[in-house]
Amino acid sequence: MKWSPILAALLLLVAACKRPAEEAVALSPQAAKGKAMFSTLCAACHAPSSKLVGPPLSEIAGLYRADPAGIVRWAVTPGRKRADVPPMPSFRGVRESDLADIAQYIIEAGTAAGKQGP
């Protein structure tokens, strides 16, 4: 089979667009469970190493690395830390064990993203 130059270029483009910070992270079982929920509940506002609406995972991991339960507390009763962005909504309706899984994912993925840089 002969490859079309356009197809080859498209495949190279797709490969280049993958997020290496997410791809290279070997997650613990708890963080792996949290990754899917993070994608659904959090990814619209938080990226691995760049600010969207909320801070990047690398910044959150730096703040809470030794206190993953702090992420859970913040998710249940968030405050407002930055005047230039909307406040985070409460995730009070999400089970605490699920929030703990998300927190572990944030710490592991954020730590990896911080090592790789922006």
Score class of each variant (00 low, 15 high):
A75Q: 06
L7G: 06
Q116T: 11
R95H: 13
T77N: 15
K33C: 10
P86Y: 05
F91L: 11
P20T: 02
E59A: 14
R73W: 05
I107F: 02
A112K: 15
A103T: 00
A61Y: 02
A8T: 06
L13A: 15
P68Q: 00
A31H: 02
D84I: 05
A83C: 11
P89W: 01
T77V: 12
Y64Q: 06
K18I: 12
W74R: 10
R19A: 13
P29F: 02
A9E: 10
R19F: 13
I60W: 08
P55D: 11
W3H: 11
A69W: 03
V76I: 14
L10H: 09
A43V: 10
D84G: 06
S50W: 14
V85Q: 09
A83E: 14
A21N: 11
P48V: 00
P56H: 01
P29E: 03
T40Q: 14
S39M: 15
R92Q: 14
W3N: 10
G93C: 10
A32K: 10
P48Y: 01
S39C: 11
D67W: 05
V25Q: 11
Q30V: 13
A66Y: 12
E96H: 08
D98K: 07
G114N: 01
P55S: 09
A44F: 12
A66Q: 14
V72I: 03
D98Y: 09
P78V: 12
R92Y: 12
P29M: 05
I107R: 02
V76G: 01
R73E: 14
R80I: 09
L12V: 09
K2L: 13
K33Y: 08
W3K: 10
L10P: 08
R65N: 14
G110S: 02
L41S: 11
D67V: 09
G54F: 06
I106K: 03
S39Q: 15
P48N: 00
G54V: 01
M88G: 07
T111R: 04
A32C: 09
K2W: 08
G79A: 07
R80L: 14
F38N: 00
I71R: 02
G110Y: 01
A43G: 10
K115C: 07
P5Y: 06
K33I: 06
R19Q: 12
P55W: 07
E22I: 11
M37P: 02
E96V: 14
C17H: 11
T111E: 09
R73C: 11
A61C: 04
L57G: 04
V53I: 15
I106L: 07
E59D: 13
G117S: 00
A31R: 02
S58V: 06
A26L: 13
S49G: 15
P29H: 02
A24Y: 07
P118A: 13
E96A: 11
G93Q: 12
A83V: 13
